[in-house]
Amino acid sequence: MTTTTIEAQHAVSIIVDHDKCIADKGCRICIDVCPTDILILDAGDGKVKMAYDECWYCLPCAHDCPTKAIRVEIPYLLR
């Protein structure tokens, strides 16, 4: 427990469907509405990814996504 930055072995609780995500076309809705500001653009493919393990599993990202590309899981420690 030294950082909440997502590492390779972290169980990510926000799952982004890369085929549906349109962040590479300029969409920023989920990034904008996230209360804890944990979503960023992946420098690789321009899609959205979870950058910090600070999710409140609240769902605005999923509900406001125009292409329904996001699925939120309960963070591993709570499941």
């Binding site: 909440t4 209360p35 804890t36 393990d53 600070e54 999710c55 409140w56 609240c58 963070p75 420690l77 709570l78």
Partner: peptide
């Protein structure tokens, strides 16, 4: 109790 820092009742912000 889960140990998850952001697993709070209130909005963790």
């Amino acid at each position: 109790a889960s140990g998850y820092l952001f697993g709070t009742y209130e909005n963790p912000t």
